[in-house]
Design a protein around this nucleic acid. Sequence first.
DNA 1: TCCATGTCATATCTTTTTTATATGAATCAT
DNA 2: ATGATTCATATAAAAAAGATATGACATGGA
Lengths: 301, 301
Amino acid sequence: MELRHLRYFKVVAEEGHITRAAERLSIQQPPLSLQIKALETELKVKLFHRRSRGVELTDAGAAFYADVCGLLAGLEEAVSKTKRVARGEQGNIAIGFTSSVIFHAATKKAIRSYRTAFPEIALSLEEDGSTELINNIAHNKLDAAFVRSNTSYVEGVRIHQMLEEPMHLAVPADHPLSIGSSKPIELAALSDQPLILYRRSSGPGLYDRIIAAYASAGLTPQIVQEAPRVGSALNLVAAGLGVSFVPQSLGAAHSEGVVYRPVECDPPLLAPIMLACRKSESSEAVKSFIRTARTAMGSRS
Amino acid sequence: MELRHLRYFKVVAEEGHITRAAERLSIQQPPLSLQIKALETELKVKLFHRRSRGVELTDAGAAFYADVCGLLAGLEEAVSKTKRVARGEQGNIAIGFTSSVIFHAATKKAIRSYRTAFPEIALSLEEDGSTELINNIAHNKLDAAFVRSNTSYVEGVRIHQMLEEPMHLAVPADHPLSIGSSKPIELAALSDQPLILYRRSSGPGLYDRIIAAYASAGLTPQIVQEAPRVGSALNLVAAGLGVSFVPQSLGAAHSEGVVYRPVECDPPLLAPIMLACRKSESSEAVKSFIRTARTAMGSRS
DNA sequence: TCCATGTCATATCTTTTTTATATGAATCAT
DNA sequence: ATGATTCATATAAAAAAGATATGACATGGA
């Protein structure tokens, strides 16, 4: 059976008349009769009563007609949907982010402007560590991810830097360093402070930058604890276990028992936000997401 | 576009490999490549990325694949449904009845046994006067109808008698004739009783039989009122406006203020139940309904 | 780096299928 | 009865699908 049979059948059913249907289909009557007969033979079902003044659907033919209309309409719908997806107007994409980037206004702005610009594309969001996110992109489980590292190079994944923000020092509210919180703190003042960092394995980016900053100031950090993610590091700070460095944007989120102070340091201690994506991305939807994000976040690279 | 394209596309999408897909389809690789390309050209959408180790769906291709699977499954479903309808196992039929026949146990039994025997066939039931029902059959708005007349002959409609039941006299409860209700009443005793009948135009069957019975007894009925249907005639009887004749089975339904008495009369005054249907019925579902009804109602004609 | 291998694309020929033309058979209306 | 209408059948022409042979291109191993 071919679509031709269904299309011909539909017109014949609507006209109740093979000759007129043939006209509407711009073919001659004999081939149309043959195609209808072939359809009946294949189904082993009589679809029309041959009357002297035309043809009339049998019960079975009427049932088939209803379904055929639906199928043909469904096909048209599928085709136009496919075209929309090809143009990048419809589809769905999966975006990942590390726990610390959602706090930054720019990532929220990026996602919001994409939703507005492409409302027909469903976004699914997933949180995980930088390493896992980048691996998921390589394995086609994610289309792009906001991360804080550019250190892990995975085959087929490219990482764009979107912006950098200063790192702030997070200190317990009752800690001596929390006094005069508006003035920057020099790194040297922290040499003997117990330091809380995040697990390097899931996000080496910030970890390495902090270690590097200590090193270039000629200091050795006293790491007392590794937290699985920034949020938990801040909880440990609030509990008084030590101090930590977090991206400035985190300050807005977690304030209970924690005081944030700018850090004086050369080169400045910065936390980047990067967008990881495939080196050769084929999906229009994903490409437009990357474009939107770069515009919204003011990335010029 | 033809179903072939969709079927081929589906297999290629599943295999991710044109050569293997061609094997599964029992054709050679070059024609399959051509058909896929033709499909892409017609849709003006690239459905596959050509990779060195095979092919891979594009976003648009993946969207199309999902829809194509649904459509092909839908087609199979439509075909098997059509076959079921052709075998008379599925479908829907429209049955009419006059207001007076549903009170008879035999019609309820007929409908019930049909529902049991063919649960997949939807029955739609409609009540109207005999004349209207029979016209509706001729105009294909109904498939069959239980009526009480065989007097109206409409082109293309055949009427089978299913059974006959005696007519009873309905008298007001406070009427002298209601005394001794178990004994039959002779027609002669009614010569000067005001008579209520139903409108002849919508159901000439019973009307004519009653008039004929009076005539053969040498009496002239004193018709005081015509009711639109049996139910309303009984209401008029209950109100004391006169007496009426109704099929025995009606006694079960309407008893408030009405007493029913058998009628002594030669030839006996009988109310038939007929089944009207098309002279040449083509639907298996309707044919099986007629068969079931005749069996359930004990018609031997 | 080069070659063997695997994979899709292209070219050409064969076969099948679809369509067109001509005509027949059946039914209905005048 | 006859002419018109409509579907069916027969046969010829055109189009399309499929087969075979081969090319182009990338990949992975020696």
